[in-house]
Design a protein around this nucleic acid. Structure first.
Length: 201
DNA sequence: GGTAGGATGGGCT
DNA sequence: GCCCATCCTACCC
């Protein structure tokens, strides 16, 4: 299972939607734990009222305005963390929320960190679940994901262009209709996380 | 199969 | 104070 090369900064220095789509099928790696990204959402810098960057640069959101290829991690509902990867050129806000992984290695570490008994497909099938399973915390806010302990790699073997499903984003109230959630069509998604509304490619 | 409610803390008005 | 880019449990079909 030797994974491919680490994604370079140029991968992230593009429009956020492009980065979100391109991240599907790539492998998030943290120590022995790794998983294929199967679900992601784009949060835009331009007029996206749902994005944390929408109301300007603050101490918390500064990372989103910084150079691409860095992690934006924040605490949600007082108990879970969410991982984003910063896109767009330096100075332009935009990030991609990583919403689900398909675990490929380090399953035992993930299970130990999750605590709750769960099947492999539920280990990292949500933004809060995957940060817990991967051991990602606020300590990772701002870290460079083109080097260091937390990285994103090409998959071990090159895949054909994946089929991508596009739907509205989940769990937000503002700008809730925008088609900015992207899923790998072949991914195994738990029933409760499926989407039955209209979708496109 | 589905959903309602609660846990829990930082950021911002 | 209020608002969350969530998850799990309990309970009800």
């Amino acid at each position: 299972m030797p994974p491919g090369r680490i994604l370079p900064r140029s991968f992230y220095a593009r429009p956020t939607v492009e980065v979100a789509r391109a991240l599907l099928g790539k492998v998030l790696v943290h120590g022995p734990a790794a998983g294929v990204i199967v679900e992601a959402e784009a949060y835009l810098g331009d007029g996206d009222e749902a994005a944390h960057s929408a109301r300007g640069r603050t101490a918390r959101t500064a990372v989103i305005f910084g150079p691409p290829g860095h992690a934006y991690v924040y605490l949600i509902y007082g108990m879970y963390h969410c991982l984003n990867l910063v896109a767009e050129p330096d100075g332009h806000p935009g990030c991609v929320l990583i919403r689900a992984l398909e675990p490929v290695s380090g399953l035992e570490e993930m299970r130990a960190r999750r605590g709750a008994p769960c099947r492999p497909e539920n280990l990292a099938s949500g933004p809060g679940k995957l940060t817990l399973a991967m051991g990602i915390t606020l300590a990772h806010n701002g870290v460079d994901v083109t080097c260091g302990p937390l990285v994103v790699r090409e998959p071990a073997k090159a895949e054909p262009a994946p089929e991508i499903l596009v739907t509205p984003r989940i769990g937000i109230t503002r700008a809730a209709h925008l088609p900015l959630r992207f899923l790998l069509a072949g991914a195994r998604i738990p029933p409760a996380r499926r989407y039955n509304g209209p979708s496109s490619r």
